[in-house]
C-alpha cells in the first residue's frame, strides 16, 4: 500500500493527503495525551506528597510514555496503553466497585483514549512499514 502511493499517480492524490491527515491526527493525539499525562503526573506527585493515591502519577507516566510512542509513530503505543487501561480498570473497581456514577471519572476518559488510539492505529502501521 505504502509503495503504491508513490508509484501510481492515482494513489498519490488520494493517498498522500490521507496519510498526512492521519499523521497529523496522530501527532495531535500525542500532544494532547502528553499534556494530560504531564498534568496527571505532576498533580499525581503532589497528591502522593500529600499522602494520597499513587494511581494518578502512575497513570500520568503511562500516558506520557504512550504519547511519546505515538509521536514516534510506534505501533507499540497500542499494547502499552492497553496495559495502562487494564490496570486502570482493575484500580477503578478496587476503589469503587460497581458504583457506576463514581466510575465516570475513572473509566470514561481512559476508554475514550483507548478508542482514539485504535482509530489512529492504521497510520501507525504504515509508518512502521516505511
Amino acid at each position: 500500500m505504502a509503495d503504491a502511493t508513490f508509484h501510481k499517480s492515482g494513489w498519490i492524490r488520494a493517498g498522500i493527503p490521507r496519510t498526512g491527515g492521519w499523521r497529523i491526527a496522530t501527532i495531535v493525539l500525542a500532544v494532547v495525551l502528553g499534556l494530560f499525562g504531564i498534568a496527571l503526573l505532576l498533580g499525581g506527585i503532589w497528591l502522593i506528597a500529600l499522602g494520597g493515591s499513587w494511581y494518578y502519577a502512575l497513570a500520568g507516566a503511562g500516558l506520557c510514555i504512550t504519547a511519546w510512542l505515538l509521536a514516534r509513530q510506534r505501533r507499540a503505543a497500542l499494547p502499552f496503553y492497553v496495559i495502562v487501561w487494564l490496570l486502570t480498570v482493575v484500580w477503578a473497581f478496587w476503589e469503587v466497585g460497581t458504583d457506576w456514577w463514581a466510575q465516570v471519572p475513572r473509566l470514561v476518559a481512559p476508554t475514550v483514549v483507548l478508542v482514539l488510539i485504535l482509530l489512529v492505529l492504521p497510520a501507525l502501521g504504515r509508518a512502521r512499514n516505511r
Binding site: A39, L40, G43, L47, Y56, P105, R106, V108
Partner: peptide, 12 residues
C-alpha cells in the same frame, strides 16, 4: 469529576 484530571484536583 468528569475526568481523572478534575478528580485529581479534587483529591488534592
Amino acid at each position: 469529576g468528569f475526568t481523572p484530571i478534575d478528580q485529581l484536583w479534587c483529591r488534592i
